[in-house]
Nucleic acid binder design. Structure first.
Length: 719
DNA sequence: CTAGGGTTAG
C-alpha cells in the first residue's frame, strides 16, 4: 500500500515536471519492449545484466528501492528473461500482477523529449546587409586590443538596431571579437537583448572552445531573466562536449529538465552523443528507448551517434541493431551514417560486412567521399585483403573519387600493411609532385615502415636524411620503424645516432619503442648490446633494471613475479605481451632457460597469453601465433613436459595434438613456422607440418606418447 | 559557420 501511495504522489508530481529520461524513479512502466527484443544480443548481457554484481532484486525489493533509483538494468532484468524465453502471455501476467504496483500499463508513456523542433525566427535582411558585412570584416581583421576594436566601431555604417546588430554579431569570426561586440551592444542599452543574441554569441564562443565564457553568459541569462531555449542548451552542451567537459554537458542537460524545458530532437541527440562519448552504452540505450517510447523518430544524426558508439565498443551486434532500427523506421542511411557504420564495422573486425555495406551504399546512389574510402582502405589493409584493397584503389582512380591528404596517407599505410613496396613508392612520388598533399611525418612513417619491415636499410636511412633536408620531423612511430630496421641489420652505431637525434628533436620514447629496443637487445651481444641497453636506460630505466635482475642467480620466482607486475602495470596494454616475449627471448639467448620458463608462467598468470592452450575431447592445441620464437619454443617445452606428467599418470589423452604457429600473413613477418619446424626436428618430436592446414603442426597420440616416454622427463633440460 | 546535433590516420 505504501508503495502505491508513493506512486500516486509521484504521478501528480510528474504532471508538472517533465521526466528526465534517465531518472528511473519517475518510471513506473517497464519501458518499451516492442523494440527491446531487437536490441543487440550481446548487449542483453552487457547493457542489461552487468551494472550490478548483486543478484537481481525481486519485485518486492524493487518497490522499496523506488526512491533509491533502481537502475535500468535492474528494472529490465525480469523482463529480459521473459523475452528470451519468448512467452508473451507471461509478460502480460507480469504486467497485471497486482503486486507490481510500479508497473502501470494503462498509463501513457511520459514524454522525455519534445517532438516539435524549435522554430527559428526568420527576419528579413535589409539593403544595408552589404555595408554591415563589410564592416564586420573590418572588425574581424582589426587588432585584438579593446582600443583598436573601439576605434573600428566608430565606423559602423548604420545605426545598431536589433537586426543590424544581429547581422554583425553573426558575421564575427574570432570569439574575442564576438564577445566584445556583444558586450558593446549590451552596454548601448538600445533594446533588450533577447535569447537569440546570447545564442549567436555562444555559437562563436563555441568555435573558440570557450566553455567558461559560454557558461558565464548562460548564468547572465538566468540572472537577467532571459529565457534559455533548446538552441541555448544544445550550444552549451556541445561546447562542453568539444572541450571534453562531459560532466558539464550532463549537468546542463539535467538543469534543462529541472527548469521544466523539454529537449527537442537536436538537444536530445546532442546529449545522446555525450553519453556515447563517455562510453555509457547503457545510458544511451535507455535514452534512446525512452525517446522512442515518446514517439520520437530518430534521424540520421541520432543513428550516426549510435553507430559510432557501437563501433568504439567493437560491438557488432550493436551495429546490426542500428541498421535494423533504421530499416524498420524507414530511415535511409546518408553518407555520414554509412561512413560511421563502415568505420564501426572495421573496429568490430568485420571486413567482409564492411565491403558489402559499401556496395549497398554505392548501389543506393550515394557516392563515397574521402572518409568512406579512408575507412575502407584502412579496413582492407588491416585485414591484409590485398586484392580488395587494390581493386578499390583502381576503382577510386577510374571513377575519379575524391582524394585528400588523409586518404593518401592511409593508402601508404595500407601498402605498408600489405608489403606493397612499389605501389607505395609510386604514390609517395605522386605526393611529392602534388600541390596540396606533400608528404608529412605520417607519409614518411609509412615509408619507413615499408623499408623497415622489408629490411631495406639503405632506403630507410636515405629517407631519414631526406626528412631532415625537407624539414619533416621524425615521430615516435617512424623512429621505431627505423630503429627496428637498423637493429635487424646490426647497424648499432646508426641506431644510437637515430635514437639520440630523435630524442633531441622531441620524440618521447613510448612503450612500443622500448619494446623495439628490448627486442634488439634479445639478439645482440657484447658492446652492441650495451649500446642499445644505454638507449633503453634513458627511456625506461626500470625495464633495464629488470633485465639485470633476470640475469642474477639469486633472483627467485617471487622476485620475478613481483617486479614484472610493477613493470606491466606501468606499460601500455598493447606493449605488455611484446615485452614478455622479448624478455623470454633475452633469457633463452643468455642460456637462462629456467628463467624463460618462469617468465612464461608469470606472463600466463598475468593474462598475457589468453587462449594459449585449448582442449577438446579430440584435440589439444597450443596456439603460439602471438608469441616470439623464444616464447613459442618455451611454451612448446612447457607443454611437452606437462604432457610427460600426464602420460605417467596414465590420464586420458585426445587423438590429436596440434601446434598453431600461423603462417605470417604479413609479407615481411618473421618465420615462426620455420623456427618451430627446425626446433621439433632437432628434438625429433613427432610433429609434422600439416599439408592442408597451413601454419599447423600435427602429432598423433601414439607417436607423441612413445616419443615422450623415450625422452623421459628431460624435455626442458635437453632443449 | 547567417541562432543548435553526427563521420577520416599507428
Amino acid at each position: 500500500m505504501a508503495a502505491a501511495k508513493i506512486s500516486i504522489a509521484l504521478d501528480i508530481h510528474c504532471n508538472n515536471i517533465p521526466f528526465h529520461p534517465l531518472d528511473t524513479k519517475h518510471h513506473h512502466h517497464p519501458l518499451h519492449f516492442t523494440s527491446l527484443h531487437k536490441l543487440p544480443t550481446k548487449k542483453k548481457l552487457t547493457i542489461f545484466c552487468n551494472s550490478s554484481k548483486k543478484a537481481p532484486p525481486n519485485t518486492a525489493e524493487l518497490e522499496f528501492q523506488e526512491h533509491k533509483n533502481p537502475s535500468l538494468s535492474e528494472q529490465l532484468k525480469p523482463l529480459s528473461t521473459i523475452i528470451i524465453s519468448d512467452q508473451p502471455n507471461q509478460t502480460h501476467q507480469l504486467l497485471s500482477k497486482p503486486k507490481s504496483t510500479w508497473v502501470n500499463p494503462a498509463k501513457p508513456k511520459p514524454a522525455v523529449l519534445s517532438l516539435q523542433r524549435h522554430k527559428r525566427s526568420s527576419y528579413s535582411y535589409n539593403s544595408q546587409v552589404k555595408d554591415l558585412r563589410f564592416f564586420a570584416k573590418k572588425v574581424n581583421e582589426c587588432g585584438s586590443s579593446e582600443e583598436s576594436f573601439l576605434a573600428v566601431l566608430e565606423e559602423i555604417p548604420h545605426p545598431p538596431t536589433r537586426e543590424n546588430a544581429l547581422l554583425v554579431l553573426n558575421s564575427l569570426r574570432p570569439w574575442q571579437k564576438t564577445l566584445l561586440f556583444f558586450k558593446w551592444v549590451k552596454s548601448q542599452n538600445l533594446f533588450p537583448l533577447e535569447t537569440i543574441f546570447y545564442n549567436v554569441t555562444m555559437k562563436s564562443l563555441r568555435f573558440g572552445r570557450q566553455f567558461q565564457h559560454i557558461e558565464d553568459l548562460a548564468f547572465q541569462m538566468i540572472e537577467n531573466g532571459v529565457e534559455l531555449d533548446n538552441i541555448t542548451y544544445s550550444t552549451i552542451i556541445t561546447c562542453a562536449k568539444r572541450c571534453n567537459l562531459f560532466d558539464k554537458a550532463v549537468e546542463w542537460f539535467e538543469r534543462m529538465y529541472k527548469t521544466g524545458l523539454m529537449p527537442d530532437e537536436v538537444t536530445y541527440s546532442a546529449i545522446l552523443d555525450v553519453y556515447a562519448k563517455l562510453g555509457k552504452v547503457e545510458e544511451v540505450m535507455s535514452l534512446y528507448e525512452r525517446g522512442r517510447a515518446s514517439g520520437w523518430k530518430p534521424d540520421s544524426i541520432a543513428f550516426a551517434v549510435l553507430g559510432k558508439m557501437f563501433g568504439e565498443a567493437g560491438d557488432y551486434d550493436g551495429i546490426r541493431y542500428v541498421l535494423e532500427e533504421m530499416k524498420s523506421l524507414g530511415v535511409q542511411p546518408n553518407l555520414v551514417v554509412y561512413n560511421t557504420l563502415l568505420e564501426a564495422m572495421g573496429k568490430a573486425g568485420k571486413p567482409g560486412l564492411a565491403r558489402s555495406l559499401f556496395e549497398e551504399m554505392v548501389d543506393s546512389g550515394i557516392a563515397p567521399d574521402e572518409k568512406t574510402l579512408t575507412a575502407l582502405i584502412k579496413i582492407y589493409g588491416k585485414a591484409r585483403w590485398a586484392r580488395d584493397a587494390l581493386e578499390l584503389w583502381e576503382r577510386m582512380r577510374s571513377n575519379g573519387w575524391p582524394m585528400d591528404f588523409i586518404l593518401y596517407n592511409t593508402l601508404l599505410s595500407m601498402c605498408a600493411d600489405l608489403g606493397l613496396e612499389e605501389e607505395a613508392e609510386r604514390l609517395f612520388e605522386e605526393m611529392k609532385e602534388s600541390e596540396k598533399c606533400r608528404p608529412d611525418c605520417w607519409s614518411y612513417t609509412a615509408m619507413l615502415n615499408i623499408y623497415g619491415s622489408g629490411g631495406n636499410v639503405e632506403k630507410a636511412m636515405a629517407l631519414f636524411k631526406e626528412m631532415s633536408k625537407v624539414g619533416v620531423d621524425l615521430n615516435v612511430m617512424g623512429c621505431t620503424c627505423l630503429i627496428q630496421c637498423l637493429g635487424k641489420a646490426k647497424k648499432i652505431d646508426d641506431l644510437v645516432r637515430v635514437f639520440e637525434t630523435s630524442v633531441k628533436g622531441g620524440v618521447k620514447p613510448d612503450d612500443r619503442l622500448c619494446g623495439c629496443l628490448l627486442s634488439i637487445i634479445s639478439y645482440c651481444q657484447g658492446e652492441d648490446m650495451n649500446k642499445v641497453l644505454a638507449c633503453l636506460e634513458q627511456s625506461n630505466p626500470k625495464l633495464v633494471a629488470f633485465v639485470k635482475l633476470l640475469e642474477e642467480k639469486s633472483t627467485n620466482l617471487e622476485d620475478v613475479k613481483e617486479e614484472f607486475r610493477v613493470i606491466l602495470s606501468n606499460t601500455a596494454v598493447e606493449a605488455r605481451r611484446p615485452f614478455c616475449n622479448c624478455l623470454i627471448d633475452i633469457c633463452r639467448n643468455r642460456n637462462l632457460n629456467e628463467r624463460a620458463h618462469e617468465l612464461l608462467y608469470v606472463g600466463i598468470i598475468y593474462g598475457l597469453y589468453p587462449g594459449l592452450h585449448t582442449k577438446t575431447a579430440q584435440e589439444w592445441r597450443l596456439n603460439v601465433r602471438s608469441l616470439s620464437v623464444g616464447a613459442a619454443l618455451t611454451a612448446f617445452e612447457e607443454w611437452m613436459s606437462s604432457l610427460a606428467k600426464i602420460v605417467q599418470r596414465q590420464e586420458t589423452l585426445p587423438a590429436v595434438f596440434s601446434a598453431n604457429t600461423g603462417t605470417g600473413t604479413h609479407k615481411f613477418s618473421q618465420g615462426l613456422a620455420t623456427a618451430f619446424a627446425s626446433h621439433v626436428e632437432k628434438l625429433a618430436a613427432p610433429f609434422q607440418e600439416s599439408e592442408e592446414k597451413a601454419g599447423f603442426f600435427i602429432a598423433t597420440r601414439e607417436d607423441l606418447v612413445s616419443w615422450v616416454q623415450s625422452k623421459g622427463f628431460s624435455v626442458v633440460a635437453t632443449a
